[in-house]
């Protein structure tokens, strides 16, 4: 694949369509090593078709080819937080990285969050995910005033 420049006008960012879903599933499977077909269909059902201003599932495409996606929503008062945007999925095809496409995807979903009236966006990442952590840092994100916790409940 020759992805070229992610800022080029022949790459557009738009809401996902049903015909894009197989490419999104394949992109995620190639990067994570796990194919999660049911999960993605459920997300498409909830975010791709009836999201309004609160839910966003966007793809970066050149013609019929999906080069990346971003998913997020506005969550009200979760974790005691005033309404804010959450980005919980962002991926760019390895051949399309370092082209500015990830920045465009994030900027576009942030525009959607602003239209929904929120002024803060958050995400959550594994702390050993240096690549994506560095990306979000490069976009201006800093540590949030929250700490994720977990425990085994076997």
């Amino acid at each position: 694949m020759n992805a070229g420049n992610g800022n080029s006008p022949d790459i557009s960012i738009r809401p996902i369509a049903a015909g894009d879903l197989d490419q999104v599933i394949a992109l995620d499977a190639a990067i994570t090593g796990i194919e999660k077909t049911d999960y993605w269909y459920e997300l498409f059902h909830r975010y791709g078709t009836r999201g309004g201003d609160q839910r966003h599932f966007l793809v970066g495409v050149r013609g019929p080819q999906v080069l990346g996606y971003v998913i997020g929503d506005v969550r009200d008062w979760e974790f005691g937080s005033a309404p804010c945007g959450w980005v919980f999925g962002l991926s760019v095809h390895p051949d399309a990285r370092q082209t500015g496409l990830g920045s465009r995807l994030l900027a576009t979903i942030c525009d959607g969050f602003r239209r929904a009236g929120v002024r803060t966006v958050r995400t959550l990442l594994a702390r050993d995910n240096n690549l994506i952590l560095s990306f979000f840092r490069s976009q201006g994100m800093m540590a949030a005033p929250y700490i994720p916790l977990e425990m085994e409940i076997e």
Binding site: G85, S103, L106, A107, C110, F113, R119, T120, V121, S134, R137, S138, Q139, G140, M141, M142
Partner: peptide
Amino acid sequence: TMLRLVERHGRGGNGPRHP
């Protein structure tokens, strides 16, 4: 990224909370 952060602090802010 650090240089951008330095620049933002130079402008008198702690940086945007959203890109």
